[in-house]
Design a protein around this nucleic acid. Structure first.
Lengths: 123, 123
DNA sequence: ATTAATATATGCATAATGCATATAGATACC
DNA sequence: GGTATCTATATGCATTATGCATATATTAAT
């Protein structure tokens, strides 16, 4: 069972975009980024480039801007198509901190569940 | 910040029902259960009884039955209103095993993300 | 010219999910 | 006997999440 398959259960994908949001906040924490370029940087967090839904990525970024977690501006004078460059806000950093707390709790709950599973299946 | 609050970010709740599904499969792994009674047993996995959406619980159980992960029958001769009692299927046990794999990977990704956060914020 | 790569964005359908509400039997209490 | 409460299951509605397909435009390569 490869990593890609592990993101699925019952033929459906689950809960990628919200985790993506946290990864994006973290990637933007200390440097700016633009949609297409963030694809590569997201792969570090387990989003394979083939599997990643680029439409979701753009929509997530715009939604985050709408919630004032990031700001964006069109890059000046680069070659190639224009890039919308995103920067995290203070609100975004606070939100990231909240997400970290949530993820720590979620991790604890997962560990608890796995512990029960192992005890029931004798592993 | 209490546990309840930790389930929220930006005023919205996230991703409870799918995790609930895995908890339900695990709770039904070695004994049967019915909706209302499972509320209490779910609290072990961090679902507080006040906060838990009972409507979601029933819908999740019916959906799981629809997917052949569990079967149900009306309990015979108990006192009080009738109970729809659920039992896990072999399919459900296989599905639970798949979910455990997914949760292990998700846990690893969370740990990775927290590691990066800590390194960026100097904790 | 045509194709491919880079780059951003929207439309549509389905699933997830909180909140409110409906239904109904059993029990307690006055 | 009537009423409130607890137990128990279920549905309707609105919003959000999310995959898939598609549209648009610039630049580079052939």
């Amino acid at each position: 069972m490869d990593d890609n398959h592990l993101m699925f259960c019952n033929g459906k994908q689950h809960m990628m975009e919200r985790f993506m949001e946290v990864c994006l906040l973290l990637l933007l924490y200390d440097e700016t980024g633009y949609g297409y370029g963030l694809v590569e940087r997201l792969s570090f967090f387990g989003f394979s480039e083939e599997q990643l839904n680029i439409g979701s990525l753009y929509r997530t970024l715009r939604k985050m801007e709408n919630e004032s977690l990031v700001t964006s501006l069109w890059e000046e004078g680069g070659q190639g198509p224009r890039r919308r460059v995103y920067q995290i806000t203070e609100t975004g950093k606070v939100e990231l901190g909240r997400w970290i707390d949530i993820l720590k709790m979620r991790k604890a709950r997962i560990e608890k569940l796995i512990g029960v599973y192992d005890s029931k299946t004798g592993k």
